[in-house]
Amino acid sequence: MLAVTLVTVKCVNPGFYEPTNLANLGVQLVPFAIMTVGMTLVVLVREIDVSIGSLAGVVSAVLGLAATQDHWNLGTGMAVALAVATGTLVGVVNGCLVALMRLPSIIVTLAMMAVLKGAGQILLDGKWVSSLPLDLRAIAAGGVPIWVGLAVIAGAYAMLTLHPWGWRLRAVGSHPEAAAKVGLPLRRLKILSFTLMGFLTAVATVVSVPQLSVVESGFGSGWELFVITCVVLGGVSISGGKGTLFGALLGVAVMGTMRSVLVYLKLGDQAVYWERAIQGGLILVAAVADRIIALRKSQVTTRETV
């Protein structure tokens, strides 16, 4: 599907393939790729986190307020550390509520989403944080976000394939009772997933906020839906256990380029109103196609075994 999109745009507007544009696109997608890595881990253990958009908002507010002179003035290093700590802490809280209290993650993170949204608005108090210091802005300059993104992806890949954590996570997701029976630390693995999710959300925020000149309260709104859509589109099963990091990242590539491509296709004045419908339709088609392929496969195998 990515291929189809890319070929279409190639025919219509070759300008899409200019190197600067591709680099831009890379920088654009990095934060989402980072969060998608985290979300993949969470979905693999059969949980979900819908609080990441609001969390990104709070982290951006903390980062902006801490880094600027007119506010808390803690210096850039301290600000980044504080921002990452905030994200990680929220992740830990989510994880503990889910794993220790055995609460459903969609509810915990739904509540967290609301709480964080309110907190972000109160932190910023109806104003913007402008004049971010230059050394903070430097974080997002050049290729830094891309390198951070690659490092995160490489780390997660290593963890999922080389380290036993990888199959442990899958085991917990595909059959929790069995995983518990063979002695896997169910709770710890879940807390770990959520903690990483919070941490990675903070990292994604830190590399994308400084691209912009001001911090405002709308930052991060709707990101959770975008990221979950990417994960689902990438074939990671929402009922846990199944799916690959590579697939999820492909999902990011499709969703991210789609928006960009819709600009490049120059569909004209009226078409802009239909863009959201096109995106929704594509997601639906992808989900159905994925399911039908899976059904075919399972039919083939059952026939063989019979």
Partner: peptide, 27 residues
């Protein structure tokens, strides 16, 4: 019938529904 998780289905129909509403009404 196709047995797709309801979260996935309705996430997609949500985007589609808002999209068609926006497109048909031009906002």
């Amino acid at each position: 019938l196709i047995n797709i998780h309801s979260l996935v289905v309705t996430l997609a129909t949500m985007a589609l529904g808002f999209g068609i509403a926006e497109g048909a009404s031009r906002g």
